[in-house]
Design a protein around this nucleic acid. Structure first.
Ligand SMILES: [Mn+2]
Ligand SMILES: [Mn+2]
Ligand SMILES: [Zn+2]
Ligand SMILES: [Zn+2]
Lengths: 140, 140
DNA sequence: TTTCTAATTTGCAACCATTGCTAATTAGCA
DNA sequence: TGCTAATTAGCAATGGTTGCAAATTAGAAA
């Protein structure tokens, strides 16, 4: 996703308004590697702008996604996650704490079973334990 | 997933009852490669057993999944899909008709970015057009 | 600056897939 | 044939998300 400044220009050029709500969300999503849900983003946004509505957060995230500035990813954990990293990558979801981190694959594997299926996109979801949830073997 | 006969034995052995509803669902899921949702299965089941409840379909699918007879897969299309093929495989989802087909990968690719993440499971979702939706280039 | 209006925001109802709850029913054993 | 724990059906409730309409506002034009 582009910087808040670039998005401001791009929005105006497209005849879209740059509202304080949008500016806040531009800032909150820029360089955000937490893969937040709409709701978790709403929680943070609300602190900085009490009264902002969850509906607006959804609306803006959807708009940015349609503009190709964000990627909406589904990691099978209830809510959609939003990702300003729109490069071709995959995700690892911690089954303990729910954290989502980026995973890159060097080369796509050979496939069997696609007879005639034209692949447009692939997304891998890894499930397991993140480093901090694996680390300190708790005693008992 | 095992055959309806084997499941009947297994259920009784586990102290579970073999009801007509369960028997029907055993039959409908056995060798079913359509990756149905609870609701689509309910539609089919209802024809053969009017009055069966959606709740029972969900309940039975969940039970079978917990017993390892089915796999519940999330292809990012709203509803959960249920799969009697519990072997290690992946899925291709047609963006036109919604069909889901099995995909097998020969070897897992090398990964970058998992620092310390312990992978327990991987699931790849391919998105694109299935053979029948690609095939006949419609004239216009 | 003030005015104007299309775009945006809000709040709330509605939606969908799924689960919780419980009274009524029933499989399967004694 | 009776007993009872397991199951079913029905419906309310949930969580995530979207539809809708009234109120507000960014930003262009006067
Ligand atoms: Mn990412
Ligand atoms: Mn499958
Ligand atoms: Zn973790
Ligand atoms: Zn298709």
């Amino acid at each position: 996703m582009r910087s808040p400044e670039e998005l401001t220009t791009a929005f105006r050029a497209a005849g879209l308004k740059v509202t304080p709500q949008r500016q806040l969300l531009f800032r909150l999503m820029h360089n955000n590697s937490a893969h937040p849900t709409a709701d978790s983003l709403f929680a943070v946004a609300s602190q900085q702008m009490p009264g902002i509505s969850l509906r607006t957060v959804y609306q803006t995230l959807t708009d940015l996604t349609e503009m190709g500035e964000l990627q909406a990813i589904e990691v099978g954990a209830g809510a959609m996650r939003f990702d300003p990293n729109v490069s071709d990558h995959h995700h690892a979801v911690c089954e303990v704490c729910g954290a989502v981190q980026d995973v890159y694959v060097n080369e796509a594997p050979e496939l069997r079973g696609l007879d005639g299926f034209a692949v447009a996109d692939a997304h891998i979801v890894y499930r397991g334990r993140c480093a901090s949830c694996s680390a300190p073997a708790k005693r008992r």
